[in-house]
Each structure stands twice: as structure tokens, then as C-alpha cells.
Amino acid sequence: MANISADNTSAAQRNRIYDGLRFTLAVALGGALGAVLRVLITVILAGESGSILQPTEGLSELFAPLQFPLATLLINIVGSFALGLVIANRVYTQTNTWSAHQEAWFLFITSGFWSAFTTFSAFSHDVLQLWVNGAAVFGFWWPPQAVAGMYLLASVVISLAAVMLAFALSHRRHKTKFAGHSE
């Protein structure tokens, strides 16, 4: 690799490899920050690192009773809203040129930060645990399946609504910013 010739093909190839490395590094940094923030919020809201690491015996680890996973619910909703804002901003901004530098920042925030901030594995784990054991919601013990369904619907529907709200807000902002601009 010492004498890479300066002809166009190898230069373009080198550029592609360099961009790939830069994007990967951006995603890694975003992922690290997102994961740390997720655990920080879980620790603050739930008092410990969520339901996953609670010490129990044997297989019952998967089916141990838990408090309602409010932290995961909030994290997924907030993360969905934020990702919606970032993506809507890109969709509604009419740009013809998108530099590799901008792409790296975009990937840092979307694929890295907000995607690692939200989590699906803890979500499915929570659904299963709630389905088997249930949890107290609003101070009452409901049928476990009802609690699991409530958690599931709340997560998916509110996150979806949050994304739609984010797109609507971004759309309105861009319309006022570029007033008179026809689409």
C-alpha cells in the first residue's frame, strides 16, 4: 500500500474507504453517547439499570415481576420524536448538494445517537414480562395481558404520533421559512 498511484480510480476508491471509515466512526460515537444517555435516564427514572439486570433465580429471570417500564416507554417516545425531527428536516430541506461532512453528522445523529438511544430488545423483554406477570399501573393490578397490551400500544401508537407530529412541525417551520416557495 506504500505507493498508491495518483490515478483517478484509486483516488476515488481511497475516498470511498475514507468516507466509509468516517461514517462508521460517526455512528460509533453517536451510538456510544446514545446508549449512555439511555442508561442514565433509566437509572434516574427507575432507580437502577432497568428490569434486565435485576438479580433473580434461574429461568424466572425472564419472567420476574417488574414495575411498569415507564423509563423505556419514555425513552422510545422521545427518541422517535427526535429522530422524526431530524429526518423531516432533511426531507423538507431542498438541498441539491449533500457533502460527506454533512452526511457524517447526519449519520452520527440518526443511525448513531437516536437509534442507539431507543431500544427494541428491552421493549420486547418488557412486553413478555408484563404478559406473564403484569405490573401495577395507576396503583391497580390489572390483568397481565391488559398491562402488556397497554404498554405495547402506548409505545407503538404514541411513538408513531410523535413522529407524525415531528414531521408536521418541521413541515410548518419550513413553509414559513421559505414563504412563497411552491412545492
Partner: peptide
């Protein structure tokens, strides 16, 4: 937690 994602799922769903 970092490998799985909920936000992308929600955006795709929209």
C-alpha cells in the same frame, strides 16, 4: 440496546 432500535421503526411505520 444499541443494536436494536425503536425510533427507526417508528419513522418507517410513519
Amino acid at each position: 440496546g444499541g443494536f436494536t432500535t425503536f425510533a427507526t421503526f417508528a419513522v418507517e411505520l410513519r
